[in-house]
Design a protein around this nucleic acid. Structure first.
Length: 576
DNA sequence: GCCGTTTTCGGCCCGACTGTTTTCAGTCG
């Protein structure tokens, strides 16, 4: 069983316990355990098989969670979940997703009115039954009805790239406000998560009223959700939530740190502050002396961290995974930056489903400061994309030779192919053709739903083929659209390691494949990653920046990324 | 339920806003 599945079950248990009104610290402990499992670079199933006592060594996993994991792996279920489900239907968890309805109110609805589903809740509100309950009134009923319609549309987390477009638009709007002194976007957007659930804007201003009034004039504003003295939340476009917080200059850094999160990172930080006799909140770091508080820092994030004897962590690693351990042994990685990328080794042209010619792609890449690219069109099996057979491919390579001969030596176009791994595990083009390539990508486009062992064997088999250099989009997932193949990534990492092969981090914002945890796993196992655009048109080259974000979240440095090296440097990695 | 340089008990991050209340509980981030 994969870590993700184990984590999901522990989370479900926490959700159900929350609905039951269990001890909030117990619930938090389960949630923390679930997160630790999800973020782990080791397989918990393997861990339990080898030595179950190892579980207790892990921070955040105690006897309780360890026992639940053991049960789940042995019996396929957690007994306590089944016990709770005998008294509480799992559909009540849907009710918790409505904004403004937490465990207490949801429980009251269930106990007093036996409301178990969203449909029943809607009917009860429309019949004005809900406002009869203690703690509820007409306004609550109204906002529940709004929430039911919004919940469906607003629940979807949007791609980071789409959030980035929205950020640019909001930034442009807010910058025209005279009262704004500083402006930053915090939250999961700033941490570079692959999807973003809402946006958090932080403004430094002495005049919150003016800033909030200006915010209300945003052209795409749909609804004001809440508005107080320093804080407001709105919905824009398709019900996407944007929060605004206004603070003074000496609190800006503290607030930026606070609202960037992650939540778990902040909990850890606050605990550390407490040990030092300090208090940290969105207004600054304070020394506690009895009833007195002395302001120590808060104008910049760096000040806040320095006061706590910590480095100013890059936002991408503020997930309470490894950053505090890194800080302790002074080994914070110098995360990859986009200017360190020298080449792009996955792109398509008009020969298959691309929109630009070889020369156009080359000129665009050169214009973006790259030193080399690989042309890697699809192979014949991908017939919808007009995939190349051996004859057309060899012709394309001759053309590349001609173009290279005309170019100066400071830029090289490599003769490549994205060759399909067929359903039976064989390659879509013969070995003697692949042997003539500079660069061979292997990837899966068909038979994606095969059982885990079969699809894993196809990928590891490809890694054993001496002509193949790299696996593209190794898990096949499309964020919010398609699940990953049932591939055993541990086996893929092992095969890559044994055969001195590389793995792709596909930078397309819908793919971001590898996942950030997989990037961290590759890092620990010493497998070089190549960040590729998989561009199908000239502007497709610009997605590289999304891949960089993802790599940073995985803790990767230039040393871990093969295409920060020269082409000769990559070749030496492959022959090592 | 988890944790420990206050270590096996007694804590567990902290503040803004809303609605339903007459001072605060619930929710959210």
């Amino acid at each position: 069983m994969e870590n993700g599945k184990i984590s999901a079950q522990i989370t479900k248990l926490a959700d159900l316990l929350e609905f039951q009104g269990a001890n909030s610290f117990k619930i938090r402990a389960y949630r923390r355990g679930a997160r630790v499992i999800k973020d782990s670079t080791d397989s918990f199933a393997t861990l339990v098989t080898n030595d179950p006592s190892q579980l207790l060594e892990i921070d955040g996993i105690g006897k309780g969670v360890a026992e639940k994991i053991r049960q789940l792996l042995q019996t396929g279920e957690i007994a306590e979940i089944n016990e709770i489900l005998e008294t509480v239907p799992s559909t009540v968890l849907d009710i918790l997703r409505i904004p403004g309805l937490g465990p207490k109110k949801a429980a009251a609805l269930y106990q007093e009115l036996n409301i178990q589903t969203l449909d029943q809740l809607q009917a009860a509100c429309e019949a004005n039954e809900v406002q009869q309950l203690k703690g509820f009134a007409a306004k609550t009923e109204e906002s529940i009805l709004d929430g039911i319609t919004i919940a469906a549309a607003a629940n979807q987390r949007i791609y980071w790239s789409d959030a980035d477009d929205l950020v640019q638009s909001l930034r442009t709007h807010l910058q025209t406000c005279q009262a704004v002194r500083q402006l930053e976007f915090a939250g999961s957007y700033r941490r570079g998560r692959e999807t973003v659930g809402d946006l958090d804007i932080l403004v430094d201003s002495a005049d919150a009223d003016t800033v909030m009034a200006h915010f209300c004039d945003y052209p795409d504003l749909q609804q004001v959700i809440v508005q107080g003295d320093t804080k407001m939340s709105i919905r824009v476009g398709n019900s996407f939530q944007v929060d605004l917080r206004v603070v003074e200059t000496d609190a800006f850094g503290a607030a930026l740190q606070y609202f960037t999160g992650s939540k778990d990172h902040n909990v850890e930080l606050r605990g550390r502050a407490k040990q030092l006799g300090l208090k940290i909140n969105e207004y600054g770091v304070f020394r506690i002396n009895g009833d007195n508080e002395t302001y120590l820092a808060g104008a910049t994030e760096a000040d806040v961290y320095t006061t706590l004897n910590l480095p100013c962590f890059a936002p991408e690693i503020r997930e309470s995974r490894n950053e505090f351990a890194w800080a302790e042994d002074n080994s914070i990685p110098e995360l990859i930056t986009i200017d360190q990328i020298q080449g792009d080794l996955h792109m398509h042209t008009t020969a298959t489903d691309g929109k630009a010619s070889i020369e156009e792609m080359a000129a665009a890449a050169k214009g973006r400061g790259l030193k080399y690219i690989a042309i890697t069109d699809h192979s014949q099996r991908v017939s919808v994309a007009n995939g190349l057979d051996a004859e057309r491919l060899l012709q394309q390579w001759k053309e590349i030779d001609r173009i290279n001969a005309r170019q100066s030596d400071d830029f090289i176009i490599l003769k490549g192919i994205e060759c399909d791994i067929l359903e039976n595990g064989s390659m879509d083009l013969p070995d003697q053709v692949l042997a003539q390539a500079d660069w061979v990508i292997a990837s899966i486009h068909f038979g994606q739903k095969q059982p885990g062992q079969q699809i894993t064997d196809r990928i590891t088999g490809a890694l054993e083929n001496p002509h193949i250099d790299i696996i593209a989009h190794p898990t096949g997932r499309l964020i919010n659209r398609r699940e990953a193949y049932a591939v055993d990534m541990e086996a893929v990492f092992q095969a890559a390691k044994e055969n001195s092969k590389l793995l792709e981090l596909n930078a397309n914002p819908v793919r971001l494949d590898l996942h950030d945890i997989h990037c961290a796993m590759a890092r620990e196992r010493g497998i070089p990653i190549v960040i590729n655009s998989d561009a199908h048109k000239i502007t497709g080259l610009d997605v590289m920046k999304y891949g960089i974000k993802q790599a940073r979240r995985g803790g990767l440095t230039a040393d871990h990324i093969a295409n920060t090296k020269s082409w000769a440097g990559i070749q030496s990695l492959l022959s090592s």
